[in-house]
């Protein structure tokens, strides 16, 4: 039997994507591994960081954007490492110049280095400025439904609550809050941060998340390319399960085989 074809696309800021897995490009051994893992993930939206060039270093060394080409992928520059709204806004403006006017950005304003927990006050300020400046903002936030709604109202095109701390691989620590956020949301909700294994990505998707953003779980695997493949399948499986709608939970057994006609 052929697989049931779904016309199920992720739409962010008016653009349509087939893959609901977004991936980062950090923490890989080298650019070759980065490129191979990104390709194996099937992701179409790929995050990058914006950093000072190393003055004096060999300028001919390969660039990330040679491996992850903006012609092939939707590049999502992030503001990782920014601790103030002002720095995040500057970073986004540099990214827009870097990517020839491309205005989709991942906003994250961090609170402290130990937890990398978002600083919500600065995040809200930065989001307001960026939206007014014409950016399409996908925003990293905590799993607070009130904050998520506020960020949507400001005009963010997607809201991305953490499952748990960035790079922790601790999965989705508060699925109830993610559900509360989704209940009220009119924009795509993606779990960003915390996913450690494919089963956790599946869980997010089964809950009805529009997508997941994964970096460390792939880059930190012993075999990143294989893990990227696994993540792609996990996200697809979770999405299909969500659309299929799971069976109701029951307190007692319900036999799968008919109870009549047994030989005894």
């Amino acid at each position: 039997m052929s697989e049931q074809q779904l016309n199920d696309k992720l739409v962010i800021a008016g653009k349509t994507y087939n893959s609901r897995l977004l991936v980062g490009t950090g923490k890989y051994k080298d650019l070759q591994e980065t490129g191979a893992a990104i390709a194996a993930s099937g992701a179409e939206i790929v995050t990058v960081a914006v950093r000072r060039t190393n003055i004096g270093q060999n300028p001919d060394e390969p660039n990330l954007l040679d491996v992850v080409s903006p012609d092939k992928y939707t590049i999502l520059p992030n503001t990782a490492g920014c601790y103030t709204a002002a720095d995040a806004v500057r970073t986004c403006r540099l990214a827009r110049e870097l990517l020839d006017g491309h205005d989709l950005v991942k906003l994250e304003v961090l609170g402290d280095q130990k937890t990398l927990y978002p600083n919500i006050i600065e995040t809200v300020q930065a989001a307001e400025t960026l939206v007014k400046d014409g950016f399409k903002v996908m925003v990293y936030t905590n799993d607070d439904p009130i904050v998520a709604k506020r960020l949507e109202e400001i005009g963010c095109v997607a809201v991305m609550p953490l499952g748990s701390l960035i790079g922790s691989g601790l999965g989705i620590q508060n699925p109830h809050n993610i559900r509360l956020i989704m209940e009220e949301a009119q924009v795509p909700i993606l779990v960003d941060a915390g996913i450690g294994t494919p089963s956790e990505a599946t869980m997010a998707m089964e809950m009805g998340c529009a997508g997941v953003l994964v970096n460390s779980a792939i880059a930190g695997a012993q075999n990143p390319v294989l893990m990227a493949q696994a993540m792609q399948k996990a996200v697809q499986a979770g999405r299909e399960a969500f659309l299929a709608v799971r069976m109701p939970r029951k307190a007692y057994a319900s036999a799968s085989s008919p109870l009549v006609g047994t030989i005894s």
Partner: peptide
Amino acid sequence: PRGEHAETALKEGDQVEVVHAIGGG
């Protein structure tokens, strides 16, 4: 903007940032 680099003269003490894309989540 890139198109204005040629006509933008620098002066003593200017603060310049030159950035590029690197791996990140």
